[in-house]
């Protein structure tokens, strides 16, 4: 079953297209990572899914309904970002108590245990928390709500390394206990890739890839060797990154085509083959030009 279906989704702010003809489907009970550079349109997409923004063009369905101003969607979608609006009149404990009345599947035992584990005080005020503590509290609300669609928009902002690790593990454990559809946006693919099933990679508001995370790891390979040999080998292949190293050597990253014999041919030609991590694949695919930041420093 598809939880989210969107086709040709477009969102325009003035002269800027934040989303541009974006189409994809999200299946039930999968953990998907939404990956993209700053300004790629991640938050816009997530806010449209959660029903906060209305799309400009195209179609979006969440639980087979249009999400904007929709009660069914509001009741079954949890959207967590770093600008949560909790009532200032309530202390932390009261926020949890009130939240529990909003969500059908709310697990108050989980909320209490996480609350104690992360050493929150009942009478603390949300607005007095540090950035990292706010994110941690948001995470508690997001997990405990156990919504059929749980959306985390950059949930780890400000969290220290230990808390981030705890968060990913808590997310996975509660997902195993209570499977649901989870959409997680992050800049740190290397941190979250282990718990993901699929990756949705977007650039300039359009979809670049939507594949299982395990395929992303084998999506590209790096070759290094003499410029002539590398240039010869990468002919007719999709090059996503290249860089000159030293005097006459070159490093290139190309899309895998699964051909063992070509790898063998490269090795025989004296080229060194290296695997490319999924986060590097994403960085190369989403960069504006093939040379990356080095292109800025080229002097004529």
């Amino acid at each position: 079953m598809n939880i989210i279906e969107c086709s040709s989704l477009t969102k325009v702010y003035g002269a800027v297209k934040a989303l541009n003809n974006l189409s994809f489907e999200l299946q039930e009970n999968k953990i998907t990572g939404l990956i993209g550079r700053n300004g790629a349109g991640k938050t816009t997409l997530l806010k449209i899914i959660a029903g906060y923004y209305r799309e400009t063009l195209g179609e979006i369905k969440v639980f087979s309904e249009k999400p904007f101003n929709n009660l069914l969607v509001s009741a079954n979608v949890m959207y967590i970002n770093d600008q949560m609006n909790f009532p200032t009149a309530l202390n932390l404990k009261e926020i949890l108590n009130v939240s529990s009345t909003f969500y059908e599947n709310w697990n108050h035992e989980l909320a209490d245990r996480l609350f104690d584990y992360f050493a929150f005080q009942q009478t603390q005020q949300y607005n007095n928390l540090s950035k990292g503590m706010k994110s941690t509290f948001n995470m508690i609300v997001g997990l405990s709500a156990r919504c059929a669609l749980t959306v985390f928009d950059e949930p780890t902002t400000g969290m220290d390394a230990g808390v981030r690790k705890d968060f990913y593990r808590a997310l996975l454990k509660d997902y195993i206990d209570f499977p649901r559809t989870i959409l997680l946006s992050s800049h740190h693919l290397d941190e979250i890739e282990d718990i993901l099933e699929d990756v949705l990679l977007i650039k300039d508001g359009t979809k670049l890839l939507h594949i299982p995370v395990e395929e992303l790891k084998e999506w590209a390979i790096g070759v290094q060797g003499s410029s002539a040999a590398v240039n010869d080998w990468i002919k007719n292949r999709e090059v996503i990154h290249s860089k000159n190293v030293g005097l006459d050597r070159m490093y290139a990253v190309v899309k895998q085509n699964g051909s063992e014999s070509e790898i063998q041919r490269a090795k025989e030609a004296g080229l060194a083959i290296t695997p490319i991590s999924s986060s590097d694949v994403c960085v190369y695919l989403t960069s504006k030009n093939k040379g990356g930041i080095d292109d800025v420093f080229i002097k004529d």
């Binding site: 996975l172 282990d194 718990i195 099933e197 995370v213």
Partner: peptide, 17 residues
């Protein structure tokens, strides 16, 4: 797959694969 997912903090679908 769920035990493996829990043990290594990985997605159950990956463990299943």
């Amino acid at each position: 797959q769920y035990q493996l997912a829990e043990m290594f903090t990985i997605n159950p679908a990956t463990a299943a694969k």
